[in-house]
Design a protein around this nucleic acid. Structure first.
Lengths: 347, 347
DNA sequence: TTGATTTATTGGAACGTTCCATTTATAGGC
DNA sequence: GCCTATAAATGGAACGTTCCAATAAATCAA
C-alpha cells in the first residue's frame, strides 16, 4: 500500500486514450477540448488517483498560486485575527496562503523565508521578528519577489508597510487617561528594537507634553510584550518612590498581565489603577474589568495587506504605497479617575 | 529591477567555472568536492542571488522537507499552542511546517489539502474541520502520503489519531462537580457531528450514572464551540423549569461564554453556578474567577504528533498507533458547592 | 615508467509539466 | 467533389534540478 509510483499525466493519457497535451489542457480548464473528451480525461484522473505536480508545472510557467505569510507570534490572537482577514481575500482570488511562525526568532525567520522562496511562492507577507537585521530581506528583494510588511516596519527599508496608526492610537489613549484626571503616567512594555515601540511611545509622550504633563511625570518601563512582561512592568512601577496612577500598555497582552498583577496585590484594575491596552483583541471585552483598548481592526489590516499583495502580483511590481490604518479608542471599564486627585466621572 | 530572469545552477556553474553537477553537489553539502572549489561555488551563489528551486529538485528526488499542518480554527489559542509544540520538534529535524487554516469549512479544507499535496509535502497533520466527510482523505491515503489526525478523529477512518483522553477528562470533571454537591448537571456546547463530542459527553454521562445522578438530572444542551455558543447554552439552561446548578463545557471557549452570560444576569460564576471547561488554555487561569478546566497539554500533543509524523516519514509507512494523551483536572475557582444543597466546602 | 587506486569533476538522461507549432478531423461554401 | 476555415488533438522541446556512469587528475605501489 505504501507509496506506489505516483501517476502522471502520461498515465492519465494512456488510461483515457489521448495525448499528454490533451490532459494538460483539461487540467487547465481550456475550452479547446471537446466536452466529452474532457469528461473521459477527468474520469481517468479520478481512477488513477492522480495528484497534480505543481513543482513540475512551475518549472514552465513560474506562476504559483501560493503566497507565504510569515508571522512572528502565532499565539498572539491578534495575529490569528489578521491571518483570518487575509485568508478571506486570498481565497476568493484562488490563492492559498501558507502560514509560518517565527516565534520572534530571526534565525528561524531566515529558515522559513528561505523555505518559502524555494517553494516558489508568488509573494510574501511578513510581520518581522524582533531583532530582524535590515539585510534579512535583501535576497528577496533581489529576486524581485513581491513582499509587504504588516504591523511592523524595519528601520530603513523601502518595503511597503500595512500598519495601524500607532502614533495616533497612543495619543488618543493617553489623552483619555489624562482626561480622567491622571497626572503621573507610565508606558508599559515593548523595547526600543521595535519601530512600533517608538511610534506608540512617541504618541504617548507627545500627548503628555501637549496636555501639560511634566516630563518627570511621564514614565517608561520597557518589558516583554506578553502577559509576563506586563506583570513585571507593574512590579517595577509600584516599587517606585512615587508610583504612577495610570498606564498605557504596549499591547493587550501586557495590559492583561498588568491587571493580573494588580489583582494579586489586592488592587482593583480600573478603580485603583487605570490601564489601557493596544490592539483590542477579542479577549479585551471579556476581561473583568473589560479592558479599554485601542482598536486597530486587525482583520481589516489583514485584508488590506492581502489586497496590496494581489495588486503587486498582478502588476508584477515590487513597489506599493504604505497603508496606515485608522484606529479608535474603545472605552470600557479599566480606567477610572485618579483616586488621589478625585477628578473625573465614575468608571 | 522587477523580475530579472532567475539564476539557475547553470549560471552559477558558468560564474564559478565548474560544471552544473559540481554546483549541485555543493548545494547538497556533499563531501566529495574540494573545499576550495566549494568555496568558489558558494561565492558565485551569493553573487548571482541564486534561489534554490525545490520544485525542480523534487522532480528527481521526491523528498521534500515540508509538512503541511491543517488546522480547523487558528483563532482558538488551543491550536496555536499545539502548533508551537509541533514546530519545536520539526525545527530540530530540519523540517518546515506550513500551516493552513480551514476555519471549520470542509470545502476550504478540500482546497487546502489539494494545494498542500500539489506542493509535494512529505506529510500532513490535520485537525479535521467539522462536518468533514469520510471520503475527504481518500485521495491522500491513495497517494500513500503519511497523515495523522490531531484532536479530532473521523467516524470510521483508520488514520492514526493523537488526542487527549476526552472520556476520562470529562469523567474527572463531572466527578468533581458531583463531589461539590451538585445534583443536576448539564453538558454545554458541541454537536453530534464531532466524535470528540461523543467522547466527552460519554464521560459526562457515565460519571453521572456511576455516581448516582438520575438520568433526568443529567442534561445536555448542544451549541457552537465558541464563546457565543456558551452564552446561548446558558440562556436555554436557565430558561428550563428546573435549571441545573453546574455545567461541564465542551471547551474553554464555551465556558468563558457561560461565565460571561452569568455575569450579565447578575450571577456570580463559581458561587451561583459552577462551570468547568475543557482544554485549559492559557486564558483559563487569568479569568475572574479562574476557570477550573481539564488540562490536555496541547503543546505536548503537538510534539507527539510531530514525532509520530517523523517516524512515519522515516519508515515510509502510512500506519501508526493512536496516542491518547493523559489529562488532568486543574481545579481553580469556578466551581463552588451547590447552594441549594448546602453541601461541600467553600470555593 | 606503468598500472592500480583513490579523489574530484563532469556530461547526459530523467523527472512531470506547459506551450508552441503542427497535424488531423469536422464543417461549410461552392 | 474540392478548397478553405475552424475545431480538436498532438509531438517535442524546454524548464532546473539530481544522479549515474564515466572521465580526468592526483596519489601510490611496484
Amino acid at each position: 500500500m505504501a507509496s506506489r509510483p505516483k501517476a502522471t499525466i502520461l498515465d492519465i493519457a494512456r488510461e483515457a486514450g489521448v495525448s499528454k497535451s490533451t490532459v494538460s489542457l483539461v487540467l487547465q480548464g481550456s475550452g479547446l477540448i471537446r466536452p466529452e473528451t474532457a469528461l473521459k480525461v477527468r474520469k481517468a484522473i479520478e481512477d488513477v488517483g492522480y495528484v497534480y505536480n505543481r513543482g513540475a508545472a512551475n518549472l514552465r510557467k513560474a506562476h504559483s498560486n501560493v503566497i507565504g505569510m510569515v508571522i512572528n507570534d502565532l499565539t498572539n490572537p491578534f495575529f490569528a485575527e489578521m491571518a483570518v482577514g487575509m485568508e478571506r481575500v486570498f481565497q476568493s482570488a484562488g490563492i492559498v496562503p501558507f502560514i509560518a511562525n517565527t516565534a520572534e526568532n530571526p534565525v528561524r525567520q531566515e529558515e522559513v523565508l528561505k523555505s518559502l522562496m524555494e517553494q516558489g511562492v508568488a509573494g510574501l507577507i511578513v510581520s518581522p521578528a524582533r531583532g530582524t537585521t535590515s539585510g534579512a530581506f535583501r535576497r528577496i528583494e533581489m529576486a524581485g519577489l513581491p513582499i509587504v510588511f504588516t504591523m511592523r516596519r524595519l528601520p530603513e527599508s523601502r518595503i511597503p508597510v500595512i500598519a495601524p496608526d500607532n502614533h495616533r492610537g497612543a495619543w488618543l489613549a493617553t489623552a483619555h487617561l489624562i482626561g480622567k484626571g491622571h497626572r503621573r503616567l507610565v508606558f508599559f512594555g515593548g523595547s526600543s528594537d521595535l519601530v512600533v515601540y517608538h511610534e506608540r511611545l512617541g504618541g504617548f509622550r507627545e500627548a503628555c507634553e501637549a496636555l501639560g504633563i511634566a516630563k518627570r511625570d511621564t514614565l517608561v518601563v520597557e518589558g516583554e510584550t506578553s502577559r509576563k512582561g506586563g506583570i513585571a512592568c507593574l512590579e517595577t512601577a509600584l516599587a517606585m518612590a512615587e508610583p504612577p496612577s495610570a498606564a498605557l500598555c504596549f499591547n493587550d497582552a501586557v495590559a492583561f498581565g498588568v491587571m493580573l498583577a494588580l489583582r494579586k496585590r489586592g488592587l482593583e484594575p480600573g478603580a485603583d489603577f487605570a490601564v489601557v491596552g493596544f490592539d483590542d483583541v477579542i479577549e479585551a471585552q471579556h476581561y473583568m474589568p473589560a479592558l479599554t483598548s485601542v482598536a486597530v481592526d486587525s482583520a481589516g489590516l489583514g485584508e488590506r495587506a492581502a489586497h496590496v499583495m494581489l495588486k503587486m502580483i498582478q502588476s508584477r511590481t515590487t513597489r506599493a504605497e504604505d497603508h496606515i490604518g485608522a484606529v479608535n479608542l474603545v472605552v470600557r471599564d479599566s480606567c477610572g479617575p485618579d483616586r488621589r486627585a478625585g477628578v473625573g466621572d465614575a468608571a
